[in-house]
Design a protein around this nucleic acid. Sequence first.
DNA 1: TCAAAAGTGTTCGTGTTACACCCATGG
DNA 2: CCATGGGTGTAACACGAACACTTTTGA
Lengths: 237, 237
Amino acid sequence: MPHASTSHEVLAVVFQVRQLDTGNPQLSALLWERAMEPQRGAWALPGGQLRDDEDMFTSVRRQLAEKVDLQEIAHLEQLAVFSDPGRVPHAVFGSRVIASTFLGLVPSPATPELPSDTRWHPVDALPPLAFDHQTMITNAHTRLVAKLSYTNVGFALAPRQFALSTLRDVYGAALGYQVDATNLQRVLVRRGVITPTGTTAKSGRSGGRPAALYRFTESRYRVTDEFAALRPPGVGA
Amino acid sequence: MPHASTSHEVLAVVFQVRQLDTGNPQLSALLWERAMEPQRGAWALPGGQLRDDEDMFTSVRRQLAEKVDLQEIAHLEQLAVFSDPGRVPHAVFGSRVIASTFLGLVPSPATPELPSDTRWHPVDALPPLAFDHQTMITNAHTRLVAKLSYTNVGFALAPRQFALSTLRDVYGAALGYQVDATNLQRVLVRRGVITPTGTTAKSGRSGGRPAALYRFTESRYRVTDEFAALRPPGVGA
DNA sequence: TCAAAAGTGTTCGTGTTACACCCATGG
DNA sequence: CCATGGGTGTAACACGAACACTTTTGA
């Protein structure tokens, strides 16, 4: 037997769209800096050991609570399991460690208090990451991009109420490319994902027509566009 | 501490489209019958304990090799993790058991030798299932249905060469509803998922035009229709 | 010549993009 | 009244569903 046991950790890739100092919104991930060897100084995903009597969602929530306000996490879903026996040095951890990853989303204007070793990092300018955490973040981002297109997960990144231009920025940052506010509106309204609140925002510093405010119709995860092709007969075009 | 440790098992939902005696093809899952308590007589997914020095894919492959010929498994992917501390009675297993599930696909004409306790069961007429295995199968089926529509996973269920009517039956069984061979052809050819081989099949017992044979262009999993909406600018439609 | 199965052509609806144009506000 | 940003209208297009029609075989 190479080592006595297998232990299990949960790790969360928590994303938020954040305004940089430069003013442009960027999809950012929550990371903490390792103060001890191995990989001292490298940045790591929040999470930790799964306890013997908790399920994984409970565990992620518990461990994230040490970093951010739980109220802020609007969506949490399972991603993949990383089980390479050599993914972390078991000499150090006393056993081989399996990691289950999760995707967590925090709505945009929130600015939770963070511990001193913890910080948000824009996903396209990440610091050196510990172990296989880079792969996990890439994985999570790919999943987020895909799901923005056929589900309503956007609700978990956007403010409660928002102008369409704001939503455009949120989607743009998360997807990594510009989206047209016009079409975004039509797609999401037709699908019933967003609804106008009736109210309008004040117009900005430099004038301009005041924006109508919208909100997400539902704040629970829902698939809105199930079939890319091969729909069952009689279900729309 | 309620129990001393956590152990980990891998379970595979292996699907194949199989001809029933009645002649009509049915999506079926590979199951074995428990000979011991608890849940004696209930049917279970193939799999078992993860060893301390193997990763999960290796483990699934190893454990499936006891049931079917490994050559036959054309696609294997991770599904979800089931981590409810009470999902199996830990009094019996000596610890709490976390399960990672996998989706395995076997191409259609293969008929691997099976151990005596193991059998294929049509998914819409499943026997009583052990523990939370029913949920796992439902989960796997949902995933398969979704992926047939926007990836080329079909290659892992279909024969190497096939007439379009055969493929229609395979897709129909897997999806759970009739699909039109005409449209199936157009969708898959346009996406470059299938290619005509140039050869044709002999026509059947009762006449009829001989069918052109096709094959899947690639035998590696690939996403063919990435965006349901919100494509990056300049990409089609 | 007829039935059976395969394959092709065509129409229609719809979702999505792209872009031009109109509207409302602040200075 | 003009710049700025928000919103609406509309055209083009690609995709897929549905279905009629033609082609090729066996009896």
